[in-house]
Nucleic acid binder design. Sequence first.
DNA 1: GGAATTCTTTGCGAAATGGTACAAAAAAGG
DNA 2: CCTTTTTTGTACCATTTCGCAAAGAATTCC
Lengths: 219, 219
Amino acid sequence: MVQKRKRPPVPRIDAPVPPKRRGRPRAYEPGVALGKALDLFRKDGFAATSLDDLSAATGMNRPSLYGAFGDKRELFIKSYRRYRDDARVAMGDIFRNELPIRKRLERIYAVALDIYLSGESGPRGCFTVMTAASEAVHDPDIRAMVLEGFAELDRAFAACFRRAQEKGELPASADPTLLAQLASATIHTIAIRARAQVPRKELETIVNGAIEVMVGAAK
Amino acid sequence: MVQKRKRPPVPRIDAPVPPKRRGRPRAYEPGVALGKALDLFRKDGFAATSLDDLSAATGMNRPSLYGAFGDKRELFIKSYRRYRDDARVAMGDIFRNELPIRKRLERIYAVALDIYLSGESGPRGCFTVMTAASEAVHDPDIRAMVLEGFAELDRAFAACFRRAQEKGELPASADPTLLAQLASATIHTIAIRARAQVPRKELETIVNGAIEVMVGAAK
DNA sequence: GGAATTCTTTGCGAAATGGTACAAAAAAGG
DNA sequence: CCTTTTTTGTACCATTTCGCAAAGAATTCC
């Protein structure tokens, strides 16, 4: 007995080290594949995206897709989760920051426009809004996710306005919940209009006007 | 020669009289068939609606559908035109009426909610918004129609606010164009949320808040 | 090296899809 | 009654769609 069998390396919490899986190694990275799937779904929507399209975009053939993510609907749901997670990190800092309310709103909408207008073949809009318009009607699970998405945005905006009110940036008479609904409505209208290829300039005009009404006129 | 061949009946302008067409008579009424097609497209969207579905709903078989309306895309476009025409007549009176601005907005949103929440199997939302989210991205013709729809609504709202301003219901400092964009944004947000089955009560809360901001706070 | 495991590849198949060809049917014209 | 015109009904075609089964390849475990 020369030496005890080499112990498996102590798994560090944040180790990106491949954990020595057992069989044939994957030919794809689940993360990037899911990203490609999300891109496609955002571009064409659920119904108009075929498994062949998804297969081509991810580089995985259909059985692999199926094995990794389940059927088309499950893949769509996982793509949506990914979108929400991405959006959360993109927005999170700004929502949490302690900037003046006006500055904060400006940054939020700027990031939103970046997200909605990105896309090589046309602006991709807001996936939550797109999904609400299509799949959410007939699929209860998807509907629940979309509703949670709306609610989360409403809450985040409301927290912003409440904080601003506490800091005296808004009059005591202002209603944070109401303002939040207006802020969300502005998000929704630019998301939709972006999808119809309204140019960024016009969307920014809408945003600036809305900000003016929300924090300018009320001050 | 007893009598000159009976002249074709003088065509009264609004005569619903069948004009004695030449061949086999139609087994459907184009108007109602188009209405059924519109219902389907609003429920499921373009991609998820098959010609079989359309055939079943209209009672026309596919060749007849094709002959009457052209291919699926043309049928979709004609359905959309029909939707816009219907919406115009439903909204037209209210927009033209000389009611106090607040009353007017209340009525407009009430009618909008009726349109968006109707539908036997779930609320059908706003067809313009739905189409903007899906087909408008890749189809220039459809995109043009959607953009015109947005613009028309913006203009109608702006005219409302301008008129209210002239009548002294709004301060001279108010910006009708800006207010119109807010009013449209409110339309868009309730259209989307309706589609996600947010109950009417909540949508009315959003509407009331928006009206308050637009004409209440500004007064 | 052989067994076990995990993923990939090929290919199939049953169903659905958009669109059309063609004959039969129903009406008017003569 | 025969022709012409227009619409219907049936049947079909080529393609696409989703999903899966079965065999092959790459890797670890013993």
